[in-house]
């Protein structure tokens, strides 16, 4: 099986994630969509590592995973603190700052 299929899959995952960020309302789901985009990046990195015959891409995927984990910690803390006050995680309710 040629590695190109994995690139197509990764591009499809990235697009699904990007569309999810743009159309979903719940902050947690939006954030999950961002994680999907990051993992699409990981898949592309690993596939290119295979195509290029070097290990760099696989190592980079580990770095991206660690950074994504750190991002989850910060992100959930922020979303939790706003949820406690508003009793809602909808991004549409965050409408105090505009114009």
């Amino acid at each position: 099986m040629t590695p190109t299929y994995y690139l197509v899959l990764s591009a499809a995952l990235f697009c699904v994630g990007a569309v999810g960020v743009l159309i979903r309302r719940n902050a947690i789901v939006v954030f999950m969509s961002v994680e999907l985009m990051l993992n699409a990046g990981n898949l592309a990195l690993v596939t290119f590592a295979r195509i290029n015959g070097s290990l760099d891409g696989q190592i980079m995927a580990f770095f991206v995973m660690v950074v994504a984990a750190a991002e989850v910690v910060v992100g959930l803390a922020i979303i939790m603190s706003i949820f406690r006050t508003r009793r809602s995680a909808s991004v549409d309710d965050s409408n105090l700052l505009k114009y």
Binding site: M37, F48, E71, S94
Partner: peptide, 29 residues
């Protein structure tokens, strides 16, 4: 207001760094 600013900054910032990662993958390829 402050928490709302943080949520907006965080979600959009994470969105943009996902683009950054995918760009890295393309340039690595």
């Amino acid at each position: 207001l402050s928490q709302e600013a943080a949520v907006k900054y965080f979600l959009l910032g994470a969105f943009s760094s996902a683009f950054f990662v995918y760009g890295i993958a393309m340039l690595y390829g």
